Simulated scan of single mutants.
Amino acid sequence: MPVTTLDPAPTLALEGGSANREPLIGLSRAALAERLRTLGVPERQIRMRLSQLWSWLYVRGLTDFAGMTDIASALRTELAERFTLARPEIVTEQVSVDGTRKWLLRLSDGKEVETVYIPEADRGTLCISSQVGCTLTCSFCYTGTQHLVRNLTASEIVGQIMLARDRLGDWPGAVADDPRGIPDAERKITNVVLMGMGEPLYNFDNVRDSCLVAADGEGLSISKRRITMSTSGVVPEIPRWGEEAGTMLAISLHAVRDELRNQLVPINKKWPIRELLDACRAYPGLSNAKRITFEYVMLKGVNDSVADAKALVRLLAKIPAKINLIPFNPWPGAPYECSDWEQIEKFAEIVNRAGYASPVRSPRGRDIMAACGQLKSASIKQRASERLAS
Rank of each mutant, 00 (worst) to 15 (best):
V132F: 06
G133L: 03
C134H: 05
C134A: 12
T137V: 10
T137I: 04
C138A: 05
C138Y: 09
G144N: 09
Q146P: 00
Q146R: 13
N151G: 12
L152E: 08
T153D: 08
T153C: 09
T153A: 14
A154T: 15
S155L: 03
E156H: 06
I157F: 01
M162A: 15
L163Q: 14
A164R: 07
R165V: 08
R165W: 01
D166S: 04
R167A: 15
R167G: 06
G169E: 12
G169A: 11
G169L: 07
D170Q: 10
D170P: 07
W171Y: 12
P172L: 11
G173W: 06
A174I: 08
A174R: 13
A176E: 05
D178L: 02
P179S: 10
P179Q: 10
G181A: 09
I182Q: 09
I182V: 14
P183V: 06
R187Q: 15
K188S: 04
K188D: 02
N191Y: 08
N191Q: 13
V192I: 15
L194I: 14
M195V: 03
E199A: 11
E199W: 14
L201P: 12
L201D: 07
N206W: 02
N206G: 02
N206K: 04
V207G: 07
V207I: 08
D209R: 14
S210K: 06
S210W: 02
L212I: 06
V213D: 07
V213L: 03
G217Q: 13
G217W: 00
G219D: 02
G219I: 00
S223T: 13
S223P: 08
R225F: 03
R226P: 08
R226L: 06
I227V: 10
T228K: 03
S232G: 15
G233F: 04
G233C: 07
V235G: 03
E237T: 06
I238L: 08
I238W: 05
W241Y: 13
G242M: 04
G242K: 05
G242N: 05
E243C: 02
E243Q: 14
E244K: 13
A245F: 10
G246W: 12
M248E: 13
L249Q: 05
L249P: 05
A250P: 07
S252C: 08
S252D: 05
A255P: 03
A255I: 02
A255Y: 02
R257F: 01
R257Q: 09
D258A: 01
E259F: 01
E259I: 08
R261L: 01
N262D: 15
Q263K: 12
Q263N: 10
L264Y: 10
V265L: 02
P266T: 06
I267M: 13
I267T: 10
K269D: 00
K270V: 07
W271D: 01
W271T: 01
R274C: 00
R274F: 01
E275I: 01
